[in-house]
Design a protein around this nucleic acid. Sequence first.
DNA 1: GGCCGGC
DNA 2: GCCGGCCAACGCTTT
DNA 3: AAAGCG
Length: 304
Amino acid sequence: MKPPKENPVLWNINGYQLQINHPNKLYWPEDKISKLALLTYYKEMAATLLPYFKNRPVTLHYFPRGIHNFSFYRRNFDQKTNSPIQTVDYQEVSQDKTIQLPLIHTEEGLLWLVSKGCIEFHLWSAKAIDFLHPDMAIFDLDIGNNTPFNKVLKAALVTRDYLKKQGIVVYPKTTGGTGIHLYVPIKPIYDFKTVRMWVKSVGGRLSKMYPELVTTEKSGRKTHQGNRVTIDYSQNSIGRNTAAPYTVRAYRLAPVSTPLHWYEVEKGGFKPTDFNLKNLPARIAKEGDLFEGTLKNQQQLPVE
DNA sequence: GGCCGGC
DNA sequence: GCCGGCCAACGCTTT
DNA sequence: AAAGCG
Ligand SMILES: [Mn+2]
Ligand SMILES: [Mn+2]
């Protein structure tokens, strides 16, 4: 007894005929969230999300059978099939190979990828075609499994306070997972190593000021940094990527990487899953797009 | 989810 | 025709 | 040198 065949759904997106197969397939079975619900989320959020994708290569994370089944990353799009996305050539660093990175500039491009099983979008921190000079410095705040979320919020606050004294504005968002991302938009005039070393040095200062709270070392060691927040500066490298603002994550409750007010970080009392596929559109309608500043306020690193 | 190569 | 493999990789750290 | 890691 096969289940009755499910009819595809057709959406017309700016004149592009998008065919959605298995629209009712449950990508999040426990949460009863379907493929069509995921597409609906990205359709509602497209206008907010697309500016962050402009000219920025994206690494895709696909889960074509839902969040509990196999997944794969994809960042190379050989431009042969008729696809509604653009690509840009990229010469890999340690392979002698040129690949074509996807650029998502349209709603139909975004939804086409989702219709093929993509759930998560991860962005590079440099734009095409100057891949050597990032326009974001990213403080990737990571914690282990038994560290409370409010500790990573504390670390975010001391990072903000430290940088504020240097006149630098920082934008926070949830990752959708257990950590926090802090973005410092910068002029694309520094190479990755410079940005990476700057983030590392800020992390180093903070670890001296708050040794129980912050470290820049990976927390594999058994003794020592058990419950500290790691500032993972290595994220600031060419070809590395970070969960995009407003991307859905393939975790229980379909959390979304959500830009925050600083007063929300100060107040705490929330979980990352409180910001999710179901409630993000309403939050944006009410609060607006809290990451807009990252598109405009390109700063310079302090001279020291 | 879909392409591609081997059988 | 069908099946299985494949779809990421930079810069560090550890072994 | 190779493997592991986020
Ligand atoms: Mn992280
Ligand atoms: Mn990390």
